[in-house]
Design a protein around this nucleic acid. Structure first.
Lengths: 196, 196
DNA sequence: TTCAATTTGTTGGTTAAACAACATATATAA
DNA sequence: TTATATATGTTGTTTAACCAACAAATTGAA
């Protein structure tokens, strides 16, 4: 079921105007009229697609993170996840940071402008879910030395933490470099990683 | 009578796609399907606005040169055309070259890609007409030492010739510099201009 | 507070864009 | 040549965007 071109275009110009406006002002200061004016569409068209601006915010975040989720899933299928050395970045992390770099404009604005950080928590969910799938797929549950849920909490929050700081510091390191560092920590464990 | 947003947008994306495609291939190699695909609209929408691609070409040229014509007319009204020194560029030429610079992307492509050079001849008409209006307005006809039509032919073809070469050579000189040079030639005459 | 101005959702009628289908025409290759 | 594909216009129907107008809610200043 291909969607009507007009639908695609309307959603596109609305979300573009939204992200663009977030560069100038905070979310509370953006009105629907504001939005549709910049998007050069009629105000009623907005309401045909979204309930209100909160609905739009949610949809925008959801769309971006769904694509991340799909990219992570796609990379899992193609690559053998287990065979990996300490000197090459893990395909999973490469995919992750490639995405984060490609959409850096979007994420930095979102992290900065959306106070309650809906992006952060949603990204954490996506990471957690993808890690869960990897573990499940390789039947690693049986061999695990600690409870799965605790491990998943550890994994996703540590990754998100690193990501957030990476953005905060202006992405000084390359995406590939970041992927390599996370690969090393996860392979060695934090103790070995710090030289113990 | 404000026009429907959809009309504005459709025309806009079509002409943008058209100019964009002319950067890649010649006019004969551009199909309507090509055009609408790049513009991301339905093919039938194209036919709702234009007869065929020749009609589009004509419309695009006409629109741009109408705006030039209007800009020249507007500058005539505001400025006193007669009082001018040899050291400051004439308002008319400033307006002309400002326009040519602003829309350089469009004109260079048109001069280069459209073989029969419909742009050149149309621009010549606009220049000729605007010069005619200036002469008429200041009642200069009576004092003229040579027939008006010959002078107009001389004026518009010399200006167009300089403009075309300016584009050909990659606009090495600034718009303002060009305006100044044409001002000097027209005030001094070619003989004095060359130092006789 | 009160009042005006702005923003918000919603609705109904109108219009242009989308889409699919068609016949025709123009290549391009066998 | 014939055949296959691609491009061109055209048409009828469906659908989404437009617009204007409305009441209700919110905001901001007097």
């Amino acid at each position: 079921m291909k969607e009507d071109r007009r639908i695609i275009r309307s959603r596109k110009v609305i979300t573009e105007a939204f992200v663009s406006l977030l560069k100038e002002k905070g979310f509370p200061d953006i009105s629907v009229a504001d939005l549709t004016e910049h998007a050069e569409i009629n105000r009623s068209t907005f309401y045909a697609h979204y309930k209100d601006k909160f609905d739009l915010l949610h949809a925008v975040i959801e769309e971006k993170l769904t694509s991340l989720s799909e990219e992570l899933e796609a990379s899992r299928v193609s690559d053998s996840v287990l065979s990996n050395t300490i000197d090459s970045p893990h395909p999973y992390f490469v995919t992750l940071f490639d995405h984060l770099q490609t959409h850096a404009g979007f994420y930095t604005i979102m992290f900065k402008r959306i106070e309650d950080s809906a992006v952060r928590s949603r990204m954490q969910e996506v990471i957690r879910e993808s890690q869960f799938i990897i573990i499940s797929h390789f039947k690693l549950e049986q061999k695990m030395l600690i409870p799965m849920d605790i491990l998943l909490d550890y994994l996703c929050s540590s990754i998100i933490g690193v990501v957030e700081k990476w953005y905060d510091n202006g992405m000084k390191y390359s995406a590939n470099y970041m992927a390599l560092q996370l690969t090393r920590i996860s392979m060695l464990g934090t103790d070995k990683a710090m030289g113990l």
